[in-house]
Design a binder for these strands. Structure first.
Lengths: 118, 118
DNA sequence: CGGGTATTCATCTCTACGGTTGACAAGGCG
DNA sequence: CGCCTTGTCAACCGTAGAGATGAATACCCG
């Protein structure tokens, strides 16, 4: 049971921070350097660097080297990891509702034809 | 600070915990009481109760009243909130890649037919 | 009303997290 | 070479989160 969680937990935790979600949004429009990413925020460059490390550890971004710059790049694969998890249970629950509706209708039928059951 | 997408932050934060994700998975199979939800875990009932409060504050579950029992119910609407956010940037980035590919191909063409253009 | 069940509230502890500042590594440029 | 830019590492601080335990609430049964 729940051995993993590791990566998925990191991904959700990473996106739980509005600043990091913002950065992800920004990165969807194109790669950017730490300085570029830091510009809009009132926090220190080090704080931004930390945020990027969190995103990187979660697998949401990757960083390469371009001279002394470290361009940050969005990793789309990890997003699928999340959507897959979400959609699985969303679908599961939806199907359950459909079955439940069917059962309820059947129960009504039964009650009408066989009231002293159970 | 941080007044921002409060709900989205709460949703992601709620799902960042493996125990809570597990509970969501369990709830996708049907509503359950606190005791039922607590059974599989080695933590106290109170801890489970807290987890449920987190999920409730995030809008992921709702709790009604059935005598002294408090059945927990999965709220699918909130999942869409998340998937919409995710898919938006996923799509945005994917489109960017497509455009980028096109541009790169065009650049190759140009280089081949018009190498010294200024 | 008293007792048992189901769940929450209050409090405390411990750790993780986000932020800050200061120092330092890596690499282009005069 | 020395310097400035870009970014990270390290240490520290305050707060929030997850857990435990103990007491309290809400409700059914008798």
């Amino acid at each position: 049971m729940s051995v993993d969680g590791g990566e998925l937990s990191r991904v959700f935790a990473a996106l739980a921070d509005p600043t990091r979600r913002d950065m992800v949004a920004r990165l969807a429009a194109g790669d950017a350097t730490v300085n570029e990413l830091a510009a809009p925020y009132a926090v220190s460059l080090q704080a931004v660097s930390k945020h990027l490390k969190v995103l990187e550890d979660a697998g949401l971004v990757s960083r390469t080297r371009d001279a002394q710059r470290r361009p940050v790049h969005l990793e789309l694969g990890t997003f699928s990891l999340m959507t897959k998890w979400i959609e699985r249970y969303q679908r599961e629950a939806e199907e359950r509702y459909r079955r439940l509706d069917a059962v309820l209708e059947q129960m009504q039928d039964h009650t009408q034809t066989n009231r002293s059951a159970g």
